[in-house]
Simulated assay, not measured.
Amino acid sequence: MSGSNSFSDPSVLAITDLSGTGQATYTFYADNAADWRWTADELAGSLTTTPSWLCG
């Protein structure tokens, strides 16, 4: 995955729950997660007009 950084910190954990009526709720566990370590320069350098990867 070009454009991404490697850290030894844990990743964010996302939990999705659906109610009986189909309403989704989301819980994110991000304490001490690596995604908070990006610098402004790294983020600016990663912006392109064409996505290089998608999550979903």
Score class of each variant (00 low, 15 high):
Ile15Tyr: 05
Ala34Cys: 08
Asp41Ile: 09
Phe7Tyr: 15
Asn5Gly: 11
Asn32Arg: 13
Leu43Pro: 01
Gly56Val: 11
Gly3His: 11
Thr39Pro: 05
Gly20Asp: 11
Thr39Gly: 10
Thr27Leu: 08
Trp36Met: 11
Phe28Arg: 13
Thr16Lys: 15
Leu13Arg: 09
Ser2Pro: 13
Pro51Phe: 04
Val12Pro: 00
Gly56Asp: 08
Thr27Pro: 01
Trp36Arg: 10
Ser2Ala: 13
Gly3Arg: 02
Thr50Tyr: 03
Ala14Thr: 13
Gly45Thr: 14
Ala34Met: 04
Tyr29Val: 06
Leu13Tyr: 02
Trp38Met: 15
Gly3Ser: 08
Asp41Asn: 15
Tyr29Met: 03
Ser46Gly: 15
Ala40Ser: 14
Pro10Asn: 02
Val12Asp: 01
Thr16Cys: 11
Ser6Tyr: 10
Pro51Asn: 02
Arg37Cys: 02
Gly45Ser: 15
Ser46Gln: 14
Asp17Ile: 11
Ser8Pro: 04
Asp9His: 04
Ala30Arg: 06
Gly56Phe: 06
Ser4Arg: 07
Gly56Tyr: 09
Gly56Pro: 07
Ala14Arg: 09
Thr49Ala: 08
Asp35Thr: 10
Ser52Lys: 07
Ala14Ile: 13
Ala33Cys: 01
Asp35Gly: 05
Thr48Asp: 11
Ser4Ile: 05
Ser4Ala: 08
Asp9Arg: 03
Ser11Ala: 03
Thr48Phe: 07
Thr16Asp: 13
Gly45Phe: 03
Asp9Thr: 01
Trp36Cys: 05
Leu18Val: 09
Ser2Leu: 10
Gln23Gly: 03
Gly22Ser: 04
Ser6Ala: 12
Asp17Glu: 13
Gln23Ala: 12
Tyr29Asn: 02
Thr39Leu: 08
Leu54Ile: 10
Met1Tyr: 05
Gly20Met: 08
Gly20Leu: 12
Leu43His: 05
Ala33Pro: 00
